[in-house]
Computed example of a mutant assay.
Amino acid sequence: MNDQPQLPFGTFETVAPALNVRDLLAGPVADALAAWADREAARSVLYVDTDPEKADTAVFCETYGVPLEASANCVVVAAKRGGETTRAACLALAHTRVDVNRAVRKRLEARKASFAPMEAAVELTGMEYGGITPVGLPADWPLLIDEAVARAPYVLVGSGRRRGKLILPGRALAALPGAEVLAGLAG
């Protein structure tokens, strides 16, 4: 009898409830899962072990049999208005692109919005480049989620590290602290 949880997609040798393998996650991700008030959502998160050399989306999806429509990318943006900078994270399905210049800028009421430099994104999130995930982001950041992600039965996202990914229901992502589901965030 196989004790591994049932995967909704993909071919992975190792799968486990993420709460059971918190030591494999980036610190902020493990802490967020442990503290998530919605315990059902926290228990729904699966961890799959993956090769960090294959963490980039296109290579990853091909290697592990994950449809692009089931994979989501989390990007960090910096929005400026006056002398102030607001950081936010945006989550969109891998086959789409976040509309930073219109949708994000408008939602954050900024004069200018752009992708944050890699070094800043890594430092501010406490996560590795190529593994940044919406789970465990700084508490004061808005998390803007494209409506297609929230509607997806299951979505694959980073684990906070380049090694390993998380799989969870789109509705659980929409229930993360600071999450806001937006129509037209990505296209």
Rank of each mutant, 00 (worst) to 15 (best):
A30Q: 10
D31A: 11
A32T: 02
L33M: 06
D38W: 08
R39Y: 08
S44V: 09
V48D: 11
V48L: 09
T50G: 04
T50L: 09
D51A: 09
D51T: 10
D56R: 08
D56C: 09
T57I: 14
T57S: 11
V59K: 11
Y64W: 10
G65E: 02
P67Y: 06
L68T: 00
A70R: 12
A70W: 06
S71N: 13
A72G: 08
A72Q: 08
N73G: 04
C74A: 04
V75E: 13
A78D: 00
E84W: 04
T85G: 02
A89C: 03
C90I: 07
C90N: 09
C90E: 06
L91F: 09
A92G: 15
L93S: 03
T96W: 05
V100A: 04
R105D: 10
L108R: 08
L108F: 07
L108E: 07
A110G: 03
K112L: 11
A113G: 04
A113P: 01
S114Q: 01
F115S: 00
A116Q: 02
A116H: 02
M118V: 15
E119K: 13
E123K: 12
E128A: 14
Y129N: 10
T133C: 13
T133E: 04
V135E: 01
G136I: 03
G136V: 09
L137S: 01
P138D: 05
P138T: 05
L143V: 15
L144Y: 03
I145Q: 08
D146H: 07
A148T: 14
V149M: 11
R151Y: 03
Y154D: 14
R163H: 10
R163D: 13
G164R: 09
L166V: 05
I167M: 01
